[in-house]
């Protein structure tokens, strides 16, 4: 058994003060209060909580800061926050709200020097780069602004480029499988597994039943799973998922 434990990470997408969820990043539905959901997932045994404000770059950021503040008062596991982060000032404000790590996507694609700036100011362990990949033609492209803009960078090119930087963690989201609950994106995983990584990698998009996790772990070296729809809509709980993974001898944190 490998010594590293597979992390189970609920992903909370936020718009204004609401937890929302879409399908393939579209058709967003209001689900509830993100603070209540974060608390529930913490009590249920989550290993980390990721929060993405999908409109923080468009409107003001105060909603996000308030939500993070409330969550970190009661949730004693790592809380990682992203959405429209463009400056060191944004990051400092999130740190003050109790965030443990920031998640950056669009701004890193637009200006890769931003990664260096973050790493030099806060250390690489403070930075997670999120990749939002979408299949267009025969290739996967990295999208920006919650799937609205194509960076025209392919997934494998971007991973190669990121590897030259001191990134703490990479999360790879499949936009095509987002909210579908039909299993993780194997075509995307094949591309990912052909690349070298010098940091942990987490995947997101498609979790719908317990076997979906085993299917991935049998073939790929993955450090964590990020889950939204299946948890938000009570398809299964983190506790049930962890019990199942333990029964399959997967090394996880049994909390």
């Amino acid at each position: 058994m490998k010594i590293e434990k597979i992390r189970i990470i609920p992903k909370l997408e936020i718009k204004n003060e609401f937890l929302i969820k879409g399908v393939r990043f579209e058709g967003l539905r209001k689900i509830g209060n993100p603070v209540d959901f974060a608390n529930k997932y913490f009590k249920d045994g989550a290993d980390q909580i990721n929060i993405i404000d999908i409109v923080a770059s468009l409107y003001n950021r105060d909603n996000l800061y308030e939500i993070v503040n409330k969550i970190t008062e009661q949730v004693f596991i790592p809380v990682c926050v992203g959405g429209g982060i463009k400056s060191i000032e944004h990051i400092k404000a999130l740190l003050e709200c109790g965030a443990d790590r920031v998640i950056v996507n669009s701004e890193a694609l637009r200006n890769i020097k931003f990664i260096d700036q973050i790493v030099q100011t806060f250390g690489s362990q403070f930075l997670t780069v999120s990749i939002e990949a979408k299949k267009i033609g025969n290739d996967y492209y990295c999208m920006m602004d919650h799937g609205r803009e194509n960076s025209n960078k392919t997934l494998s090119d971007w991973i190669k480029q990121l590897n030259k930087y001191n990134v703490g963690e990479i999360i790879i989201n499949s936009i095509d499988n987002d909210g579908i609950e039909n299993g993780f994106d194997f075509e995307l995983l094949n591309i990912v597994s052909n690349e070298e990584f010098n940091c942990p990698k987490v995947i997101n998009g498609g979790a719908g039943n317990f076997n979906h996790f085993i299917n991935v772990l049998e073939k790929y070296d993955i450090d964590g799973f990020s889950i939204a729809t299946a948890l938000h809509f009570n398809k299964f709980s983190i506790k049930e998922l962890k019990e199942f993974l333990i029964s399959k001898k997967v090394n996880i944190n049994p909390l």
């Binding site: 590293e4 434990k5 992390r7 963690e169 964590g224 996880i252």
Partner: peptide, 11 residues
Amino acid sequence: KIKVPLLGWYT
């Protein structure tokens, strides 16, 4: 000897 950085839960 071990994956670096250590990021996550260990016994």
